[in-house]
Simulated assay, not measured.
Amino acid sequence: MSKFINWKSNWLSGNFQLFADGVQKGMITFETWKSNAESMLEDKNYQFVNEGFWQSSTKVIDRKTGGVVAVITYDSWKSKALISLNTGEQYEWKSTGIWKSQWTVSNYKDAHIMYTSGNNSGAISSDTDNNLLIIAGLFIKQVYHKRAVLIIACIVPIISTSTLRHH
């Protein structure tokens, strides 16, 4: 079954709204100053809770049962992540576009989700109806985006200070 979802995001907060056929079907809401998030898509409601230094992993909790349904682990050097479901299935998230405007979630067998982004909006094309995987793909993108912003925020003052000292 193919699913087509459009999304819009608020650049400042990083929150997402998800639409199918022009009707809002879901959202992802991030905590201020953290990458933890609450999400909902159709009848599924998940909480994403980051753990470890530099948020090296994320537990995904089903809000209806309170159980952990997946763990996301990040490969910070390659902009990749592994989504491990509690069923034992594993899916890889990776960036495929040169400008980080395209990415995929796939098990390289029967589930493949493609994401594209433009200016604070984009589209999702999925051949699986697993809402957890669809939401996780956007969540991971935002985690890497927040990391990039943090790195830039730390590096720019250092470069500016060292440049000013040499003049």
Rank of each mutant, 00 (worst) to 15 (best):
V156R: 12
I83R: 06
I113V: 12
Y74I: 08
M27A: 12
S79W: 02
T32G: 13
K59H: 11
N130P: 04
L150I: 11
H166Q: 13
A81S: 10
T128P: 14
N119Y: 06
G88V: 09
W7S: 02
V71G: 04
E31Y: 13
D127V: 13
T161V: 09
K94Q: 07
W103Y: 03
K64Y: 03
I159T: 12
I113E: 03
V149K: 06
K3R: 15
I158C: 06
I72C: 01
K141C: 15
R147I: 05
T58E: 07
I158S: 07
S79M: 01
Y144Q: 09
L132N: 02
V71I: 12
K3Y: 14
D43L: 07
W7H: 02
A123R: 01
T161F: 15
N86P: 07
W93P: 00
I28R: 07
W11P: 12
V49K: 11
I5P: 03
D127R: 07
W93S: 00
T128D: 01
Q47M: 02
D127C: 10
T29A: 10
N10F: 14
S101I: 11
W7A: 06
D110H: 14
S126R: 01
E89V: 07
E51K: 15
N6L: 13
N45D: 04
T58M: 05
E89S: 06
Y91A: 05
K8R: 00
D62W: 00
I83E: 01
K34F: 09
L138M: 11
W103D: 08
S121Y: 14
I158M: 01
T96M: 06
V60I: 12
N120H: 14
K8C: 08
F4A: 11
R147S: 02
N107V: 05
E38F: 10
M1K: 12
I28C: 05
F16K: 04
I155P: 01
L12T: 14
S126V: 06
W54H: 10
W33V: 08
K146Y: 03
D43E: 04
Y108G: 04
Y91E: 05
T32W: 14
S162Y: 15
T104N: 06
M1N: 12
V143M: 08
S95P: 05
K78L: 02
E92P: 01
F53H: 11
I158H: 05
W7F: 08
I28V: 08
S76H: 04
G66W: 02
A37M: 06
W103F: 00
W77E: 05
L18H: 01
D110T: 09
S79Y: 09
Q24Y: 01
P157S: 15
M27R: 12
